[in-house]
Design a protein around this nucleic acid. Structure first.
Length: 112
DNA sequence: GGTGTGACAACAA
DNA sequence: TTTGTTGCCACAC
């Protein structure tokens, strides 16, 4: 499988419970600047055995990427709410919930 | 190789 | 705030 995909999945796995990240942020951390859209593609083909918290990835605005009211959007909202992330009108307040990776996260989480 | 397509982002109005 | 436009770039045809 494409090593870029592995890197992206690993990065998403590092997002802690109760926090979220944007597509662009994940791309940057994975060493793939300006490739937010690749992250989106990547998330829809996660292998089942991987257990990647895809639902913690949102648009830079805090909006859920799926159309509001869609089944996928509902599912994502429920998963976020279940770990304490407040979702109103298909959107999260990034000010409150955006993940700020520590130096340790970057040095030890993204290497393998 | 050209072309169209994204679970995007930044900006304008 | 919400909507539209433009830039972006790896992929799949």
């Amino acid at each position: 499988m494409n090593p870029q995909y592995q890197k992206i999945w690993n990065t998403v796995t590092l997002i802690p419970r109760g926090k979220v990240a944007s597509y662009g942020q994940v791309a940057d951390l994975a060493g793939l600047p300006n490739r937010a859209r690749l992250v989106g593609k990547c998330l829809k083909c996660i292998p089942e055995n991987k257990l990647v918290p895809w639902y913690r990835v949102l648009r830079s605005t805090g909006q859920i990427a799926f159309p509001s009211g869609s089944e996928q959007a509902k599912k994502q909202r429920d998963l976020l709410m279940s770990e304490g992330v407040l979702v109103l009108n298909n959107r999260v307040k990034m000010r409150n919930f955006q993940w700020e990776p520590s130096l340790n996260d970057i040095l030890y989480g993204l290497t393998y």
